[in-house]
């Protein structure tokens, strides 16, 4: 379950460590509350788990509901990425642990990333699992990262330590674990004034990322694109 806490102009959204459709819908509802807040506003997104920020889509959910239904989570997630890319107020991901696959793309869809120092990894697991990364996910990676980091994440399944993530601009800041939320709040307070004129903020973000947003918001499952490698389509 997600949880939204308001502290004056700052909202803190705690997400569950994996995504399934009802959880994405719940996140959308909580995001509505943040966007409807008047005056200066900023949003911090984190998780309550002790060592995972997000593991991406929920593989158990997929197994339980069958691959084809399970895969519909991809289009729901891309809708969420598209929304965050054009969110009306400044957004900060406070990465409190491992940030993996769909969870990494989620973190990259927000404006700023602060990570807790620790033995946490950042990686895309798809190629290793024989799965495809949809175009919507790839376009977030290519928009927010440099070409060589995008390649190494996707085509080599390179695992980045938090220090490497900082050096490669995957995250903006690295802080001690106990300081993570302090620093996130500090940055949120600094940015909140830009979240007052919401029409302006969303306009600039849409202008900046319009093609990435478009691709994600219009994404839908296409059997050919989503086919899990090595399996017959009929089994999906």
């Amino acid at each position: 379950m997600s949880e939204l806490v308001q502290e004056g102009n700052i909202f803190i959204l705690s997400i569950p460590i994996s995504f399934m459709i009802p959880r994405v819908e719940e996140i959308h509802k909580l995001l509505d509350i943040v966007e409807n807040h008047e005056g200066p506003t900023a949003l911090i997104i984190t998780s309550k788990h002790h060592k995972i920020f997000s593991a991406g889509m929920d593989l158990k959910y997929m197994q339980k509901h069958g691959a084809w239904t399970g895969l519909s989570i991809f289009s729901a997630l891309m809708g969420l990425y598209g929304r965050l890319l054009s969110f009306k107020v400044p957004t900060i991901a406070a990465l409190n642990g491992h940030t993996i696959a769909g969870g990494l793309i989620f973190a990259l869809s927000v404006d700023y990333r602060i990570m807790a120092r620790g033995k946490f990894t950042i990686k895309m697991t798809e190629l290793g699992l024989g799965a495809v990364i949809p175009r919507g996910g790839n376009v977030v990676l290519s928009t927010k990262l440099t070409p060589s980091v995008h390649r190494d994440l996707v085509l080599r399944c390179k695992e980045y330590s938090c220090e490497e993530a900082l050096a490669n601009n995957i995250v903006d800041e690295l802080v001690e674990s106990q300081d993570l939320m302090i620093r996130a709040r500090e940055l949120a307070n600094e940015l909140a004034s830009l979240g007052e004129k919401k029409d302006v903020y969303i306009c600039v973000k849409k202008s900046m990322y319009y093609d990435t947003i478009d691709i994600n918001l219009k994404a839908e499952i296409k059997k050919i694109e989503w086919k899990i490698m090595g399996k017959e389509e009929s089994k999906l």
Partner: peptide
């Protein structure tokens, strides 16, 4: 005064993703 996509386009082409963000938002 938000820049439009036309105003953002050259920044996007010439800046790395981090600078693109830092300068525009």
């Amino acid at each position: 005064m938000p820049l439009t996509p036309k105003g953002c386009a050259i920044f996007k082409a010439k800046l790395n993703p981090k600078m693109y963000r830092n300068i525009l938002i």
